[in-house]
Design a protein around this nucleic acid. Structure first.
Lengths: 207, 207, 207, 207
DNA sequence: GATGAATGAGTGTTCATTCAT
DNA sequence: AATGAATGAACACTCATTCAT
């Protein structure tokens, strides 16, 4: 993992913002250069090409996404508390990187670019593993139901969050969230609690 | 609602496919014209501009999204059954229009285009209303818990579906879904059942 | 062989001029567009790309290079007269297309472009064939020496011509050729006669 | 004549190679810098500019082109033998510097650069002079015909050589020259003999 | 009503060169 | 003396759109 200098980091920051707001194709290198106050040629000079800029941006941001869950397991918490903490951690982290997820999700959908998503998948696999350990523990202790498909728990945590984010204008309106801060606060409090409840309900539900 | 002729419908169909696959900016009018076997000038001629084509496409498709839930309420079903049926209806409908949702979600995110999403929001409001009626009924009958935020049930239904779709490559891999048909079958069976279970668990969960 | 319209022919003409004067890499599509008084986009529009423009230019010009030598053989001429006429024909033709040869020679030398020179080689082969027939006839009649390598006669005809052209500034100076017309006249008269004499000398030379 | 240091000579060597292979415009300073393992800025630093590099390259190489023909005249040879030796010397020397000639010929043709070719012309004049002395001697001894245009003998020697070189792919094919070594051997043996024969035939030909 | 020709603006990228160190 | 960073200009090409027919 190469380190980037200040200017390169500035370019990455601007690119992240513009790509997430207007998409990769909707953002020109001139837009990035103008907003980052650098010469157009710098993007090719530093990153090789616009596409490689995206790639390096994704790799750079993804490498910070792996959750540090060691403490979670060391701490003396009940499986329920662990689930709560895990979800809180998830949402906080997703919300910090929501621009990146916006970009990645769209780029995965449009298969045009052949970006290596393996490191992204790696993160997801690791996170899934952590989730599985907690659920296993809860099941062993007889707290959670036996009938749980772990692979579907993750989309049940992240799905609502992303859906909420993607329909920001709609939920802003019906929940009367007046400022972006209100929206953010709603996510970190109400929505997080809702998702925690959902997962816990699911883990104890006997159908 | 203006009616479109055959050629216009063909253009809309091709545009829907290409926009969903490569994004709006990633699709050129030449691509559309070539795939639809029409002259490039036709798009401007029929729709005014590429942007207006998108707008008309969205409006045209959205109008078909309103769920017909009348029968759902006429039928003599328990609230649980109604929830199951509603979710089944939702997912089926989402899945039939997943291209359209792909487009709309991205276009909402990139605020560039000022497309009128009111009719889209209308649909969501109507669907929310239907959901609310069922939940109200379940609560009145003492079957569901009192403590339910209806506004968050919808993202809990649709969120996991969209997240699953958006991460198709990842879930294809970890669930060993070999063909697109396998993937679709998994959505309509396993994922639907999972979401039904999730919602029902949530509706009876007393925290 | 597709026909070109007036504008396309104008572009080809300008491209031929500029490519021969400044080379392919030394000529930008902007230069061509400006000199041909057309929009830059037209070059891509009409020919696909700058490289394809070169290719089509070469093919278009080459197809006119095959010498019509039927009359030469029908006419009741001595082999010596035929050689004279053939060389005259050669030089006249080379001189009419000297720009094209300038381009082709350089492009052959720089192997960068993978242009199909087969049609060019075809022409050379055909011309070689004609030359061989005349020499065979002269040998049969006992007029020419037996010891002739036909493959080397062609470079002995064309080589001096091209060398003269390529060193135009030098020969202009030492031969005191004041105007381009003088230079051209020298080629068509003196140089042609010199080459005719050279070849005839060679054909009768017993070493 | 300024002397060049090792790095400068390396740059000249690489530039000579690349210019001859891909032309001046087809070679970027980056290409040269990479192949010469030097910093890009070095070319401007050492030579002023890319164009001046070409100029200095040409001047440097031209100064080595003057044939040393003193021995030729000192030796006790017949005019015919002298012609043979001269041509052999010519071809050998041309072939050693064929890259340089490739560059110069193209640069003369494209009048863009205003390089001083006077020293190049000087060389040609000197060589012409030597040729003239031999021919004069042959004429005085009654061995050569009177009617000789010396200015046209040079192109008759060099023209076939260059034409052969420029159409390398064609002659490689029709003469079945399998390797570059075969090609070179053919030039130094067969082609040289052919040119010697041509000139001698011309010098004795009475038309 | 429908279209081929045409265009100006914009795309990402590469260029030779400069400059602070 | 030598160089890595940086740049403005130019590159070939594609874009959505217009317009005469």
């Amino acid at each position: 993992m190469t380190e980037f200098n200040d200017k390169q980091n500035e370019i990455l920051l601007v690119a992240e913002k513009l790509f997430s707001e207007h998409g990769f194709d909707g953002t020109s290198v001139r837009d990035i250069a103008k907003e980052a106050n650098i010469n157009i040629a710098m993007i090719s000079y530093y990153f090789g090409s616009k596409e490689k800029l995206l790639e390096k941006l994704i790799i750079n941001r993804i490498s910070g996404l792996r959750l540090e869950m060691e403490n979670l397991f060391k701490e003396n918490l009940t499986p329920f508390e662990k689930i709560d903490r895990l979800i809180e951690l998830y949402i906080t982290r997703l919300n910090q990187n929501c621009r990146m997820y916006q970009i990645i999700h769209f780029e995965i959908a449009s298969k045009k670019r052949d970006i290596n998503y393996e490191s992204f998948n790696d993160v997801k696999r690791t996170n899934l593993e952590a989730l599985k350990r907690i659920i296993d523990e809860g099941q062993e202790k007889g707290l959670f139901t036996k009938n749980i498909d772990v692979a579907l728990i993750a989309p049940t945590i992240m799905g609502p969050y992303f859906h909420f984010q993607m329909n920001k204008p709609f939920y802003t309106e019906i929940l009367n969230l007046k400022t972006p801060e209100d929206f953010d606060r709603y996510i970190l409090n109400d929505l997080t609690k809702h998702i925690q409840k959902t997962i816990k309900a699911l883990l104890v539900y006997e159908n």
